[in-house]
Simulated scan of single mutants.
Amino acid sequence: MGAKQMEQEAPALVLPYVEKMEKKLSFASKRFKKICVFCGSSSGKKGVFSDEALNLGRELVDRKIDLVYGGGSIGLMGQVAHTVKSGGGHVVGVIPKALIGPELTGSTVGDLIAVSDMHQRKAEMARQSDAFIALPGGYGTLEELVEVITWNQLGIHKKPVGLLNVDGFYDTLLTFFDKQMEEEFFDNSARSIVVSAPTASELLDKLEAYAATPAYAGPKLCWEMERPCAIGYTTTPIAGLGQ
Protein backbone atom coordinates (compact mmCIF):
# COMPACT_ATOMS: atom_id res chain seq x y z
CA MET A 1 0.00 0.00 0.00
CA GLY A 2 1.45 3.37 -1.06
CA ALA A 3 1.67 6.41 1.21
CA LYS A 4 -1.02 8.24 -0.70
CA GLN A 5 -3.42 5.30 -0.46
CA MET A 6 -2.75 4.98 3.29
CA GLU A 7 -3.46 8.67 3.74
CA GLN A 8 -6.78 8.31 1.92
CA GLU A 9 -7.89 5.21 3.86
CA ALA A 10 -6.69 6.20 7.34
CA PRO A 11 -9.53 8.65 8.06
CA ALA A 12 -12.10 5.99 7.27
CA LEU A 13 -10.43 3.64 9.73
CA VAL A 14 -9.61 6.13 12.47
CA LEU A 15 -12.74 8.30 12.51
CA PRO A 16 -15.19 5.68 13.85
CA TYR A 17 -12.71 4.79 16.62
CA VAL A 18 -12.25 8.46 17.56
CA GLU A 19 -16.00 9.07 17.57
CA LYS A 20 -16.51 5.98 19.75
CA MET A 21 -13.87 7.12 22.25
CA GLU A 22 -15.22 10.70 22.37
CA LYS A 23 -18.71 9.38 23.02
CA LYS A 24 -17.40 7.10 25.77
CA LEU A 25 -15.38 9.88 27.43
CA SER A 26 -18.30 12.32 27.34
CA PHE A 27 -20.81 9.87 28.81
CA ALA A 28 -21.14 10.77 32.46
CA SER A 29 -24.24 9.83 34.43
CA LYS A 30 -26.84 12.59 34.39
CA ARG A 31 -28.39 11.47 37.67
CA PHE A 32 -25.93 9.60 39.83
CA LYS A 33 -22.66 10.54 41.46
CA LYS A 34 -22.46 7.47 43.70
CA ILE A 35 -24.23 4.11 43.61
CA CYS A 36 -24.36 1.63 46.48
CA VAL A 37 -23.77 -1.99 45.46
CA PHE A 38 -24.93 -4.88 47.63
CA CYS A 39 -23.41 -8.26 46.78
CA GLY A 40 -21.90 -11.43 48.13
CA SER A 41 -18.58 -11.78 49.92
CA SER A 42 -18.43 -15.03 47.97
CA SER A 43 -18.02 -15.25 44.19
CA GLY A 44 -20.77 -17.85 43.90
CA LYS A 45 -20.83 -21.06 41.90
CA LYS A 46 -20.99 -19.67 38.36
CA GLY A 47 -18.32 -17.69 36.57
CA VAL A 48 -21.00 -15.49 35.03
CA PHE A 49 -21.55 -13.85 38.43
CA SER A 50 -17.94 -12.67 38.54
CA ASP A 51 -18.09 -11.65 34.88
CA GLU A 52 -21.07 -9.39 35.50
CA ALA A 53 -19.55 -7.97 38.70
CA LEU A 54 -16.54 -6.90 36.63
CA ASN A 55 -18.86 -5.50 33.93
CA LEU A 56 -20.71 -3.48 36.55
CA GLY A 57 -17.44 -2.03 37.80
CA ARG A 58 -16.44 -1.06 34.27
CA GLU A 59 -19.85 0.51 33.59
CA LEU A 60 -19.58 2.62 36.75
CA VAL A 61 -16.14 3.83 35.64
CA ASP A 62 -17.35 4.59 32.10
CA ARG A 63 -20.31 6.57 33.44
CA LYS A 64 -18.14 8.36 36.03
CA ILE A 65 -20.17 6.96 38.94
CA ASP A 66 -18.37 6.31 42.22
CA LEU A 67 -18.94 3.21 44.32
CA VAL A 68 -20.27 2.77 47.85
CA TYR A 69 -20.05 -0.81 49.11
CA GLY A 70 -19.77 -2.97 52.20
CA GLY A 71 -15.97 -2.90 52.48
CA GLY A 72 -13.59 -5.78 51.97
CA SER A 73 -11.87 -7.26 48.97
CA ILE A 74 -13.24 -10.79 48.67
CA GLY A 75 -16.02 -12.27 46.56
CA LEU A 76 -18.15 -10.22 44.21
CA MET A 77 -17.83 -7.12 46.40
CA GLY A 78 -14.06 -7.18 46.00
CA GLN A 79 -14.30 -7.66 42.25
CA VAL A 80 -16.56 -4.63 41.82
CA ALA A 81 -14.48 -2.47 44.17
CA HIS A 82 -11.11 -3.33 42.60
CA THR A 83 -12.49 -2.70 39.11
CA VAL A 84 -13.81 0.75 40.01
CA LYS A 85 -10.65 1.68 41.91
CA SER A 86 -8.28 0.51 39.17
CA GLY A 87 -10.37 2.42 36.63
CA GLY A 88 -9.89 5.70 38.49
CA GLY A 89 -13.23 5.81 40.30
CA HIS A 90 -13.68 6.73 43.94
CA VAL A 91 -14.58 3.86 46.27
CA VAL A 92 -16.03 4.13 49.78
CA GLY A 93 -16.37 1.06 51.98
CA VAL A 94 -18.70 1.10 54.99
CA ILE A 95 -18.11 -1.63 57.54
CA PRO A 96 -18.85 -2.40 61.20
CA LYS A 97 -15.74 -2.25 63.36
CA ALA A 98 -16.20 -5.87 64.40
CA LEU A 99 -15.78 -7.03 60.79
CA ILE A 100 -12.57 -5.13 60.07
CA GLY A 101 -9.77 -7.60 59.46
CA PRO A 102 -8.30 -9.62 56.60
CA GLU A 103 -9.56 -12.91 58.06
CA LEU A 104 -13.18 -11.75 57.64
CA THR A 105 -13.40 -9.34 54.73
CA GLY A 106 -9.93 -8.92 53.28
CA SER A 107 -8.46 -5.46 52.86
CA THR A 108 -10.81 -2.55 52.28
CA VAL A 109 -10.53 -1.03 48.83
CA GLY A 110 -10.62 2.77 48.75
CA ASP A 111 -11.73 4.92 51.68
CA LEU A 112 -13.15 3.32 54.80
CA ILE A 113 -15.97 4.45 57.06
CA ALA A 114 -16.13 2.33 60.22
CA VAL A 115 -19.47 2.19 62.07
CA SER A 116 -20.71 0.56 65.24
CA ASP A 117 -23.12 -2.03 63.85
CA MET A 118 -25.01 -3.35 60.85
CA HIS A 119 -27.86 -0.88 61.30
CA GLN A 120 -25.50 2.09 61.04
CA ARG A 121 -23.75 0.46 58.12
CA LYS A 122 -26.93 0.30 56.04
CA ALA A 123 -28.00 3.81 57.01
CA GLU A 124 -24.61 5.28 56.11
CA MET A 125 -24.43 3.42 52.81
CA ALA A 126 -27.86 4.77 51.94
CA ARG A 127 -26.94 8.32 52.96
CA GLN A 128 -23.83 8.21 50.79
CA SER A 129 -25.60 6.95 47.65
CA ASP A 130 -27.93 8.13 44.89
CA ALA A 131 -29.18 4.65 43.91
CA PHE A 132 -28.83 0.98 44.85
CA ILE A 133 -27.89 -2.15 42.92
CA ALA A 134 -27.97 -5.73 44.19
CA LEU A 135 -25.76 -8.33 42.55
CA PRO A 136 -26.20 -12.01 43.47
CA GLY A 137 -25.43 -12.73 47.11
CA GLY A 138 -26.59 -14.46 50.26
CA TYR A 139 -28.75 -13.57 53.26
CA GLY A 140 -26.93 -10.29 53.91
CA THR A 141 -27.42 -9.07 50.34
CA LEU A 142 -31.11 -9.95 50.45
CA GLU A 143 -31.59 -8.24 53.80
CA GLU A 144 -29.89 -5.03 52.61
CA LEU A 145 -31.89 -5.04 49.40
CA VAL A 146 -35.30 -5.48 51.05
CA GLU A 147 -34.56 -2.80 53.63
CA VAL A 148 -33.80 -0.09 51.05
CA ILE A 149 -36.91 -1.13 49.09
CA THR A 150 -38.96 -0.71 52.27
CA TRP A 151 -37.38 2.68 52.99
CA ASN A 152 -38.43 3.79 49.51
CA GLN A 153 -42.00 2.57 50.11
CA LEU A 154 -42.14 4.50 53.41
CA GLY A 155 -40.86 7.72 51.87
CA ILE A 156 -37.53 7.69 53.72
CA HIS A 157 -35.86 8.07 50.32
CA LYS A 158 -36.89 8.07 46.66
CA LYS A 159 -33.72 6.58 45.26
CA PRO A 160 -34.07 3.86 42.61
CA VAL A 161 -33.35 0.24 43.46
CA GLY A 162 -32.05 -2.19 40.86
CA LEU A 163 -31.62 -5.97 40.73
CA LEU A 164 -28.79 -7.19 38.52
CA ASN A 165 -30.55 -10.42 37.63
CA VAL A 166 -27.52 -12.35 36.37
CA ASP A 167 -28.42 -15.65 34.72
CA GLY A 168 -31.92 -15.47 36.23
CA PHE A 169 -30.56 -15.46 39.80
CA TYR A 170 -33.40 -13.25 41.07
CA ASP A 171 -36.24 -14.74 38.99
CA THR A 172 -37.85 -16.46 41.97
CA LEU A 173 -37.59 -13.32 44.12
CA LEU A 174 -39.23 -11.21 41.43
CA THR A 175 -41.98 -13.84 41.14
CA PHE A 176 -42.46 -13.63 44.89
CA PHE A 177 -42.80 -9.82 44.67
CA ASP A 178 -45.48 -10.35 42.00
CA LYS A 179 -47.25 -12.83 44.30
CA GLN A 180 -47.23 -10.29 47.14
CA MET A 181 -48.85 -7.73 44.85
CA GLU A 182 -51.36 -10.31 43.58
CA GLU A 183 -52.39 -11.06 47.16
CA GLU A 184 -52.74 -7.29 47.78
CA PHE A 185 -50.01 -6.85 50.37
CA PHE A 186 -48.94 -3.87 48.28
CA ASP A 187 -50.03 -2.27 45.02
CA ASN A 188 -48.40 -1.73 41.64
CA SER A 189 -46.80 1.55 42.68
CA ALA A 190 -44.89 -0.28 45.42
CA ARG A 191 -44.01 -3.14 43.06
CA SER A 192 -42.53 -0.66 40.58
CA ILE A 193 -39.93 0.48 43.12
CA VAL A 194 -37.69 -2.39 41.97
CA VAL A 195 -36.27 -2.49 38.44
CA SER A 196 -34.27 -5.40 37.08
CA ALA A 197 -32.12 -6.36 34.12
CA PRO A 198 -29.73 -9.21 33.23
CA THR A 199 -26.73 -7.00 32.42
CA ALA A 200 -25.05 -4.06 34.12
CA SER A 201 -25.37 -1.78 31.11
CA GLU A 202 -29.11 -2.40 30.71
CA LEU A 203 -29.77 -2.03 34.43
CA LEU A 204 -27.92 1.28 34.68
CA ASP A 205 -29.87 2.59 31.68
CA LYS A 206 -33.11 1.63 33.45
CA LEU A 207 -32.03 3.28 36.69
CA GLU A 208 -31.13 6.46 34.81
CA ALA A 209 -34.63 6.49 33.29
CA TYR A 210 -36.41 5.56 36.51
CA ALA A 211 -39.05 8.01 37.70
CA ALA A 212 -40.22 7.62 41.28
CA THR A 213 -43.95 6.97 41.64
CA PRO A 214 -45.76 8.99 44.33
CA ALA A 215 -46.73 5.74 46.01
CA TYR A 216 -46.76 6.90 49.58
CA ALA A 217 -48.57 10.02 50.76
CA GLY A 218 -47.54 9.78 54.41
CA PRO A 219 -44.73 11.57 56.24
CA LYS A 220 -41.17 11.59 54.96
CA LEU A 221 -39.75 9.40 57.67
CA CYS A 222 -36.18 9.70 58.85
CA TRP A 223 -34.07 7.80 61.34
CA GLU A 224 -31.86 10.75 62.20
CA MET A 225 -32.06 13.40 64.87
CA GLU A 226 -29.02 15.49 63.94
CA ARG A 227 -29.64 15.58 60.19
CA PRO A 228 -33.44 15.37 59.73
CA CYS A 229 -33.29 15.69 55.93
CA ALA A 230 -30.89 12.83 55.21
CA ILE A 231 -30.55 9.13 55.85
CA GLY A 232 -27.84 7.85 58.11
CA TYR A 233 -26.02 8.30 61.36
CA THR A 234 -23.30 10.74 62.30
CA THR A 235 -20.10 8.95 61.33
CA THR A 236 -16.47 9.91 60.97
CA PRO A 237 -14.22 8.39 58.31
CA ILE A 238 -11.07 6.85 59.75
CA ALA A 239 -8.06 8.49 58.14
CA GLY A 240 -5.42 6.15 56.84
CA LEU A 241 -7.62 3.05 56.65
CA GLY A 242 -8.48 1.62 53.29
CA GLN A 243 -6.26 1.33 50.26
Rank of each mutant, 00 (worst) to 15 (best):
S196W: 02
L221S: 09
Y69G: 06
M6C: 00
P16G: 10
L174D: 02
L67I: 02
L164P: 13
F32E: 09
M118T: 02
L142K: 01
A3C: 00
I231R: 08
S201K: 14
I149L: 11
L15I: 13
A239S: 14
I238W: 02
N152Y: 12
D62P: 04
Q128R: 15
N55W: 03
V18A: 14
L99H: 03
L221Y: 11
D205I: 08
A12M: 11
G101N: 07
W151S: 07
R227E: 10
I156C: 06
E103F: 06
L67E: 00
L145D: 03
L174A: 09
K4L: 10
V195Q: 03
Y170L: 05
K23H: 15
S129C: 07
E144R: 04
D167S: 14
V115E: 11
G75Q: 10
S43R: 06
G44A: 02
R127Q: 13
Y233R: 08
T236W: 01
G88Y: 04
D51N: 14
K220H: 11
L135Q: 05
P219M: 01
W223G: 15
T235F: 13
T213R: 06
E103S: 15
S42M: 00
K122W: 03
A12V: 11
A212Q: 09
L173C: 14
F169M: 01
G93L: 09
A28W: 04
K158H: 13
T141V: 08
T150R: 09
L135F: 09
H90F: 11
G218D: 01
V166R: 04
L15K: 15
A200R: 02
A126T: 12
Q128P: 00
K97E: 13
T141E: 10
M225S: 15
Y233V: 15
G78Y: 08
I95E: 07
G70Q: 09
Q8N: 08
T150V: 09
G40P: 00
F169H: 08
G138N: 11
G240H: 03
T213D: 13
F186S: 12
V80T: 11
S50K: 06
V80W: 08
A197P: 06
G70I: 07
D187W: 04
L154Y: 12
A114Y: 01
L221E: 10
F38E: 02
I35H: 01
A114Q: 08
D66Y: 10
C229S: 12
K46I: 03
E144I: 05
P96K: 05
S43Q: 00
S107Y: 09
K179V: 12
L204S: 09
A28V: 08
E147F: 06
E208I: 05
A230E: 15
S129Q: 01
A215T: 05
P102Q: 09
A81L: 12
F27N: 15
V146R: 02
P11Q: 09
V48T: 15
E224M: 10
E19V: 13
Q243K: 11
C229R: 07
I74N: 03
D130W: 02
I231F: 01
E184G: 10
Y233P: 00
G168A: 12
I156W: 02
F32T: 14
H119V: 08
S43L: 04
A10W: 13
D171H: 15
Q8R: 13
G101M: 12
V148F: 08
